[in-house]
Design a binder for these strands. Structure first.
Length: 849
RNA sequence: GGGGGCAUGGCGGAAUGGUAGACGCAACGGACUUAAAAUCCGUUGACUGCAAGGUCGUGAGGGUUCAAGUCCCUCUGCCCCCA
């Protein structure tokens, strides 16, 4: 039975067999419990990279494990196939986005199969296919019907040379267009939004349901939603029947308001500006309009603002206060205006000092004094002063009391505000799902229920001018679905996050051509039991998917509150880079003479060796195909699983890949050298070495099973298999049925991790059915029982040695043996023992004087 | 600036408050070989000792405890999110 382990021979063979037997097809056996394993679907760039390999390997182990544990498992795959790169390829290489995307998908599907990932390809989806995006459009219309989709003006990046709208990714760090190099302008355009803010509170509170999510992801979402509790207050404008509305979390400081600030874009800006300030204000507004939000609000930048000349009244004090505009106040955020309380807000303090605005302290520390003049803002809660009838009141009470007064007087009310803003889904691009709306001069925006609204295929891609769709008159001009009058199609397409916010709902019923999904099927399979993907999606994709799920639930289309039960965010795969610390340049490894003391071949500088995310520009990428060719998919999988815990970054190291290849070779030899024994039923009494080996076997089962429960510690699971493999090689009882049990157990433990070699060896042992249809090894607790156990001897908490005692020894016996041990006597003889702590099964600690 | 996380041998990483460094990589020594590769056996935290053993040791400092990598406080460094 001797042969060499040659992955190339066996991997393709088994992949074909599994395919033929439909081993990866989702079981519909309703007597089994369901398990929905999901990987974040990739953008079909054409090349599988190591990050993908890691993601999909992790999910595949889980899926294979759950199948062996008797679940019916849904493990689907699809393509997040709309988006900019396809359109760029069209512009640059004159290939149609659809064709380019299809080619890439075919290539990547092939690469997936080489890895031995057990996807159910019968349920494959591509978001760019009309069979799919017709339902994206349908879901958009559900939002539209529910009043959750609306239009308003918003800012876009505008390339003045190419006369086109740019995506954020097409604007470089200097604010220039990727194509024309022109400075990008900001322009207002009427665009579609989804009212995610209506669900802000639910999206926040339901985070508590997500017990299987990493805390930091939940925290990131909570921060993103950004709930703040406070008050809405209105400041009447002098000489006008208008008010400036502001939101504040500190209504207790309202007596310290010495000015109000409007966002430059605020409609009131023009109206409150006095004539001799007009020119200055217009110039400022113009200047600010070219700045990005980040530039305007960055904390290290000076806050710039100018007075409008207009005045408002602080209704609480009755005093006149100036109205300013400033770059750091954003119109999109909150009410687009803020009240200035320099004494108690850091930013306002700086702003007031710069601009010589009044600073009136109204809060002092409890039992403290007013520092005059104030040298910094006092931002803590405290006790009110200079606040009329509220003087002496502590901040928390004052907040309530002041809100109450505002409500009675009609000056404002309590309000909760969220940082979260409505989701802008319009994209002025071709390669996306068209928004199924017709604009009619009589009826306004009308839903086009005749889905799909297909993307026209005969389109010209120049990267210039309006979106390719807007230029197709025949496509744009249609009769209104309601009144029949000549009308125009919406030419914007949807943000690709729309496509990916519901794809997990399509898999359970991927081929349905009369509905997005069948209610029974969706309620059967949802929620996803384990979702795995990169941390980069911690906020947007996951938040949008949660939002969609809740809206569809409220439309009566499904039952779950939350789409993803458990979430695992896997770490990056990093490659070894050689970096010149002086020039900051990366050097290709093959150009370095001696890798142990790397020297820059051009400059002679000593190179730094660091691990960074794999990328072409850093020359540190490792192609999955190359690794598979050299070592096989099983080795690649084992390496990735063993090298680091799944949520941590993983440093690609060729020597460690070799290590895993060696391990699989050891298993290969172990099994091929083993003559199948007399069966694995263990009967009668076992010899001592048999008992010990059997104990090792069942410890491995226990540890691997525990490592794969909940937290998925693949790295330690692999090391437990290594221990078992070591124990089997060391065993002197190769003829024993216990040894046979060990070999078979090892293979079944290994099957989810290295599916090909496990299958091959399983068949070499004479089995005719697939190892992947076997039950995962079950723990026999009786096998774990040892006759003797090791007890640690400590003196004053320091370990001094160990003793062996019978497993069933009681406390007194253990203590007695411990006292008599050499280890203890060396340190306790002649000393007074003050206390003895006996932890049965663990240790004895002597406390001496 | 606010919030969160992390820090363990030469390296990746293990350790329900109970023998720190499992498992692997690298390194070193040995066996096999004409030689090498592969494989197998052994050593490998530091210091000390002929040995048995001892002392120190999980970023730094303090604390709780019979016992701390693990819990609490302060600090330093790095990473992430938000601003």
């Amino acid at each position: 039975m001797e042969s060499r382990y040659n992955p190339a021979d066996i991997e393709q063979k088994w992949q074909q067999v599994w395919n033929q037997h439909g081993l990866n097809r989702t079981s519909e056996d309703s007597s089994k419990e369901k398990f929905y394993a999901l990987s974040m679907f990739p953008y079909p760039s054409g090349d599988l990279h190591m990050g993908h390999v890691r993601n999909y390997t992790i999910v595949d182990v889980i899926a294979r494990l759950k199948r062996m544990q008797g679940y019916r498992v849904l493990n689907p795959m699809g393509w997040d196939a709309f988006g900019l790169p396809a359109e760029n390829a069209a512009i640059e290489r004159n290939i149609h986005p659809a064709k380019w995307t299809d080619q890439n998908i075919a290539q990547m599907r092939d690469q997936f199969n080489q890895l031995g990932i057990s996807f159910d390809w019968d349920r494959e989806i591509a978001t760019c296919s009309p069979d799919y995006y017709r339902w994206t459009q349908w879901i958009f219309l559900e939002f539209f019907k529910a009043g959750l989709a609306y239009q308003k003006d918003a800012t876009v990046n505008w390339d003045p040379i190419d006369q086109t709208v740019l995506a954020n990714e097409q604007v470089d760090a200097d604010g220039k267009s990727w194509r024309s190099g022109a400075i990008v302008e900001r322009k207002q355009l009427r665009q579609w939004f989804l009212k995610i803010t209506d669900y802000a509170e639910q999206l926040l509170t339901d985070l508590d349901q997500l017990t299987g999510w990493p805390d930091r992801v939940k925290l990131m979402q909570a921060n993103w939603i950004g709930k703040s509790v406070g008050a809405y207050l209105e400041f009447p404008i002098m000489g006008m029947d208008e008010k400036v509305g502001v939101f504040t979390t500190r209504p207790d400081t309202v007596y310290g308001v010495t000015y109000v600030v409007l966002a430059p874009e605020h409609p009131l800006t023009q109206r409150v500006t006095v004539s001799d300030r007009r020119a200055a204000i217009d110039a400022f507004v113009q200047e600010v309009s070219t700045q990005t939000e980040l530039e305007r609000t960055a904390e290290d930048k000076p806050k710039r603002g100018i007075p409008t000349g207009g005045k408002a009244i602080n209704p609480f004090t009755g005093e006149e206060i100036p109205i300013w505009i400033a770059d750091y106040v954003l119109y999109e955020y909150g009410t687009g205006a803020v009240m200035g309380v320099p004494a108690h807000d850091v930013r306002d303090f700086v702003f007031a000092q710069q601009n010589e605005l009044a600073i009136v302290p109204v809060i002092i520390p409890e039992g403290g004094d007013v520092a005059t003049p104030l040298t910094a803002a006092y931002t803590e809660p405290g006790v009110l002063i200079n606040s009329a009838e509220f003087d002496g009141m502590p901040s928390p009470n004052a907040k309530q009391a002041i809100i109450q007064k505002a409500e009675q007087a009609g000056w404002g009310n309590a309000r909760i505000q969220y940082r979260l803003r409505d989701w802008l889904i319009s994209r002025q691009r071709y390669w996306g799902a068209p928004i199924p709306i017709v604009h009619c001069p009589n009826c306004g925006a009308v839903a086009d229920a005749d889905l799909p609204v297909k993307l026209p295929e005969d389109v010209e891609f120049s990267g210039r001018g309006a979106s390719p769709l807007a230029k197709l008159d025949a496509w744009v001009n249609v009769p209104c679905p309601t009144c029949g009058a000549p009308a125009k199609r919406e030419t914007d397409t949807m943000d690709t996050f729309m496509d990916s916010s519901w794809y997990f709902l399509r898999y359970p019923d991927a081929k349905n051509d009369h509905a997005a999904f069948d209610r029974t099927k969706i309620n059967d399979w949802m929620p996803v039991d384990q979702y795995v993907g990169g941390i980069e999606h911690a906020i947007l994709h996951l938040l949008y998917s949660r939002f969609f799920t809740k809206v569809l639930r409220d439309r009566g289309l499904l039952k779950v509150d939350e789409p993803f039960q458990r979430l695992l965010t896997q770490g990056m795969v990093q490659g070894k880079t050689y970096k010149n610390p002086r020039t900051g340049k990366y050097v290709i490894a093959t150009q370095i003479a001696d890798l142990t003391t790397p020297i820059d071949p051009e400059t002679g500088d000593k190179l730094e060796v660091v691990y960074e995310k794999m990328s072409k520009s850093k020359y540190n990428g490792v192609a999955p195909g190359d690794v598979i060719k050299k070592y096989g998919a099983d080795t690649a999988r084992m390496f990735i699983l063993f090298k680091a815990p799944p949520e941590k970054d993983l440093e690609w190291e060729d020597a460690d890949v070799e290590g895993q290849f060696r391990f699989l070779n050891r298993i290969w030899r172990l099994v091929t050298e083993f003559a199948p024994g007399s069966g694995i039923r263990v009967q009668g009494s076992l010899s001592k070495p048999e008992k010990e080996l059997r104990r090792s076997i069942h410890i491995a089962i226990k540890e691997v099973t525990e490592d794969l429960q909940g937290d998925y510690q693949f790295n330690t699971a692999v090391s437990e298999m290594m221990k078992l493999s070591n124990a089997l090689s060391d065993a002197a009882i190769k003829e024993s049925p216990v040894y046979a049990e060990g070999i078979q157990t090892l293979l079944r433990l290994l099957a989810p991790f290295a599916p090909h070699i496990a299958e091959e060896l399983w068949h070499l042992l004479g089995h005719t059915d697939s190892i992947h249809t076997q039950a995962f090894p079950m723990l026999d607790p009786a096998a774990l029982v040892a006759d003797e156990i090791t007890i640690v001897i400590q003196v004053m908490g320091k370990t001094r040695g160990t003793i062996q005692v019978p497993a069933q020894a009681d406390k007194a016996t253990i203590e007695q043996s411990a006292r008599e041990s050499d280890a203890a006597r060396r340190h306790i003889d002649g000393k007074e023992i003050k206390k003895v702590i006996v932890v049965p099964g663990k240790l004895v600690n002597f406390v001496i004087s």
